[in-house]
């Protein structure tokens, strides 16, 4: 177990260090006021993901002093990029049915970075049920964001879970690459990223315990490091966390000396910006996976 804690710690610390070192590559190009927030290739979504990873490092409090400082600096950086929440506020006010301002805000609110006018707007949206129609796993993401921010709604997480792929307990081969991501996110949101492992119903827990080793084996063999990292997060979100040394050593072996963790087994280019663009998501995943695994092994909050 000690060896596993060290491996998980090292993967997370190096990935977080890489994100921190390269953070300026993730900034909005000119300024946030003129950026196209709907561009899936743009900076907005990666900034949200950076805030998510940082907020979980801070929440768990199991990282070393340097990592805690880097996490605090990163969430400060994303907050500054979002003009201390004004960008989210204006976007939510103008497009009341969008859920990304709330979801992005939740990570900052969790880190103590609050925006009063945005919260008032979010409360009003909740009262009106101003929310676009979403896939079931995405609906859970929004419900969890409301829960984190502290906006009361009558969301029934168990009923929402049953609408998802995972909640239906399909035959375990009825899964593809995309749906595997849906499945992982269902677990993330129901458990609030491992904080509430007991909120997974027993049949879902049994299902995940049965099949996670297989999904991990297959996608690890296929060199899908990003998805492997997500599956390791799911493993750490179970009531009895699954932390397998061999799986973690495999994940760690894919990490480069500078902390970059490639998203898959294709060659990594040399260009610094392209490297960041291609692999930043996997670094976020690795930071979260290592942080949660370490926390659960040490008997932390989650």
């Amino acid at each position: 177990m000690t060896s596993l804690v060290h491996t998980a710690h090292d993967v997370a610390a190096r990935a977080l260090g890489w994100l921190h070192t390269n953070r300026d590559l993730g900034a909005f190009e000119d300024d946030a006021a003129t950026t196209d927030l709907n561009d899936p290739e743009g900076a907005y979504k990666p900034l949200c993901e950076l805030a998510l990873a940082s907020s979980l490092v801070l929440r768990e409090g199991v990282a070393g002093t340097n990592e805690q400082r880097a996490a605090r600096a990163l969430v400060g950086f994303t907050w500054q990029q979002l003009r201390e929440g004004d960008l989210l506020y204006e976007r939510q006010l103008r497009h009341a049915l969008l859920t990304d301002p709330l979801e992005t805000y939740a990570h900052h609110a969790r880190s103590g970075l609050r925006h009063e006018a945005l919260e008032q707007t979010l409360v009003q949206c909740a009262v009106e049920d101003s929310m676009t129609e979403l896939l079931p796993n995405r609906r859970l993401a929004v419900a969890n964001a409301h829960r984190i921010v502290g906006i009361h709604r009558d969301d029934d997480f168990t009923a929402m879970l049953r609408q998802t792929w995972l909640g239906r307990i399909p035959q375990p081969w009825a899964l593809d690459w995309y749906t595997a991501y849906y499945m992982t996110h269902t677990v993330f949101h129901v458990t609030d990223w491992g904080a509430k492992p007991g909120d997974l119903p027993p049949d879902v827990v049994e299902y995940l315990e049965n099949w996670l080793p297989v999904w991990i084996d297959v996608w690890a063999e296929a060199g899908q490091w990003d998805l492997l990292g997500e599956l390791l997060i799911v493993s750490a979100c179970l009531p009895e966390p699954r932390c397998d040394l061999a799986e973690w050593e495999l994940f760690a072996s894919a990490q480069h000396a500078d902390g970059l963790l490639p998203r898959d087994d294709r060659p990594v280019v040399d260009d610094t910006e392209q490297r960041y663009h291609d692999h930043k998501h996997t670094a976020v995943v690795a930071t979260i996976a290592g942080t949660l695994a370490m926390s659960r092994l040490l008997g932390g909050q989650a």
Partner: peptide, 14 residues
């Protein structure tokens, strides 16, 4: 039965 079914799932996904 669990190892057996894991094996068949692995083969099907592969």
């Amino acid at each position: 039965p669990q190892a057996l079914c894991r094996g068949v799932l692995r083969a099907a996904l592969r």
